[in-house]
Structures are given as structure tokens and as C-alpha cells.
Deep mutational scan, measured.
Amino acid sequence: NQESVVAAVLIPINTALTVGMMTTRVVSPTGIPAEDIPRLISMQVNQVVPMGTTLMPDMVKGYAP
């Protein structure tokens, strides 16, 4: 099972992602793959992401799977 990126904290809208904001977990449905965390650093979320929420591609500005 592939791990997906999950919010480790509440991430406010338009916040640039940092390593500490993200964790990984096997979830269903799957979100952004864990191995993409290095690509996500400094990208901004386009909505509020509650802690424990799986990051989906459409939540991150400029992210393309």
C-alpha cells in the first residue's frame, strides 16, 4: 500500500508547505504520494487543510501529478 501525504497540523489557506506540516499515512482514497514531499515544500495550499486531512493534488497550487 502506498503512503499518501497527510496534514500533520492545521494548514491555513495560502500557506507555503514545510516538512513539519506534512506526515504520511496509508489512506483511502490515496492522495499525493509520500515521495512527492520534496516537491511540495514551498508550494501553497489553496484551501484550509485540517489536521489529518489527506492532501489531494487539487489542494496544492501548481502541483501536477
Rank of each mutant, 00 (worst) to 15 (best):
M56Y: 08
S28I: 05
Y63E: 04
N46H: 09
M22C: 03
P29S: 10
M22R: 00
G52V: 02
M51P: 06
M43Q: 11
P38H: 15
M51T: 13
N14Y: 12
M21Q: 09
V45Y: 00
T53G: 06
N1I: 13
L40D: 00
P65V: 14
R39W: 09
G31Y: 02
T30V: 15
K61D: 15
I37K: 11
V48D: 07
S42L: 11
L55W: 01
P65H: 05
V45H: 01
R39A: 15
A16K: 12
M43G: 04
S28N: 14
V48P: 11
I11F: 02
T24M: 08
I11L: 09
E35Q: 15
T23A: 12
M21H: 14
P12V: 04
D36T: 07
Y63V: 03
P29R: 12
D36S: 09
I11G: 00
Q2S: 14
V5Q: 00
T15Q: 10
S28R: 03
I13V: 12
V45E: 01
A64P: 06
S4P: 00
V60T: 02
M43N: 04
V9P: 00
M59F: 11
D36A: 15
P50K: 06
D36K: 12
R25S: 07
N1E: 11
T24V: 07
I37R: 10
V26K: 14
V60S: 01
P57Y: 08
A8P: 01
V27T: 09
Q44W: 09
V45G: 00
P57E: 09
I41W: 05
V45Q: 01
T15H: 06
M59P: 01
V9W: 04
V9N: 09
G62K: 09
P29E: 06
N46S: 11
L55Q: 00
S4A: 03
S28M: 11
R39N: 13
P12D: 05
Q2H: 10
M43P: 01
I32M: 05
L10E: 13
P65C: 04
G62A: 05
N14Q: 10
A16R: 14
T30I: 15
P50N: 12
V6Q: 05
E35A: 10
A8W: 10
G20E: 11
V45F: 01
P38W: 08
I41V: 07
R25M: 04
G52Q: 05
N46W: 06
S42R: 10
M56G: 06
Y63A: 05
V49F: 01
